[in-house]
Simulated scan of single mutants.
Amino acid sequence: MADLIAWVMVLAIAAYACAGGTDYGAGFWDLMAGGADRGKRPRWLIDHAMAPVWETNNVWLIFVFVVMWTGFPTVFQAIFEAMWLPLTLAAVGLVLRGAGFALRKPARRLARRRLYGAMFAVASLLTPFFLGAVLGGIAAGRVKVGTSASADAWAHPVSVLTGLLAIAASAFLGAVFLCADARRFGADDLVDYFRLRAFLAFGAVVVLALIGLPVTRSDARYVWDGLTGGWGLCLVILAGVCGLATVLLLLRREYRWCRYPSVASVALVVVAWGLAQRPYLLPTSLTVEQAAGAAHTLRWLALVTLIAIVLVGPALVLLYRLDTLGRLEPLTDADTRAARAPGDNL
């Protein structure tokens, strides 16, 4: 039962890395779009593409935390004690990001729109970095039961590289999805704009992964061994194939299908990381069995998780499907009473 719950948690992390990562990637390109005039069209597309689903994607992160503190309270305590600073910064980023995105569009004054837009864009960069840094610290074995909070737990080469990889992978996903969204919204001028950025982001992922090879081997040897042998290596290779397939589809301008292998490439890396850590939740100090809560708690957690999958799962699938088909349209400026008013240019 403990192994089952642990795998549910890994799959939820993979879902958040893909769904939430796409949103973070859109925020990254919002930050890189340039000034108000130059970035007007990309930001318009980002607003319309994200609006129907951006709040829903955070459900996966909440689910991960609930499963962790219920099923593996010792792990939850150890991680939050050792990593409270990056996790707090990530949480602040989540709040500021949501507030910036929600308030930017209805703001009437240009100065306020710029302020809220900056909040959204900068937080979209910082939040995935700190979440990635936490995962890197865990993979490197820097977190143990009783570990005191310190920069050594997360400000080391593996954590920094993992944080940068999280940003690059998010940028890759965001650009791939925005290519398809540009066609969906009839913004043909933005298709090649985000196509180029998808290529650049994929190149950044490859470069960071190559840099991370010797670093991971020396600083996270247990996870390195798991990723370079057995099923872990198979999934890493398959993730690379999916990434290359995405690039090939983009080159052929098959925007309808390129989203699927891009999501698969990120999800497979997360699952490979889960396989590489077996049987540990905190390498190499705490196994899944050692960290598991009481047996009756795990049984109830499994039951509640099953009910959630049955009741919520189809709704999420339908929501994502309707969004990718273009059936969900965000509110217009007129709907939100954000019509142009005196002082807009102040």
Rank of each mutant, 00 (worst) to 15 (best):
M9G: 04
V10W: 05
G21F: 02
D23F: 14
A26Q: 07
W29D: 01
A36S: 09
K40T: 00
R41M: 01
P42M: 01
R43C: 00
W44H: 01
H48L: 09
T56V: 15
W60F: 14
I62A: 09
M68R: 04
Q77I: 11
Q77L: 08
A78G: 10
F80V: 13
W84S: 09
L85S: 03
T88I: 14
A102G: 12
A107K: 12
R113L: 10
R114A: 10
R114K: 13
A118Y: 08
M119K: 02
L125G: 06
F129T: 12
A133C: 13
V134D: 00
G141K: 06
K144T: 12
G146A: 04
D152C: 04
D152K: 07
V160R: 00
T162P: 00
G163L: 11
L164S: 02
L165K: 06
I167M: 09
A169D: 02
A169Q: 08
G174D: 02
F177R: 03
F177C: 02
R195G: 08
F199M: 04
A201R: 01
V205D: 00
L208M: 10
A209V: 14
L213A: 12
T216H: 02
W224S: 06
D225C: 03
L227A: 05
W231I: 08
I237D: 01
C242S: 10
C242P: 04
A245W: 04
T246C: 10
E254N: 15
A264Q: 05
S265V: 10
S265I: 06
A267L: 15
V269S: 02
G274N: 08
G274E: 03
Q277N: 12
S285M: 03
E289D: 14
Q290W: 07
Q290K: 07
G293T: 15
A294F: 12
L298N: 03
R299S: 12
R299I: 11
I309L: 06
V310M: 03
L311I: 15
A315G: 02
L322M: 11
D323K: 06
R327L: 14
L331A: 13
D333N: 06
A334D: 12
A334I: 14
D335E: 14
D335S: 11
T336R: 15
R337S: 07
P342Q: 10
L346M: 13
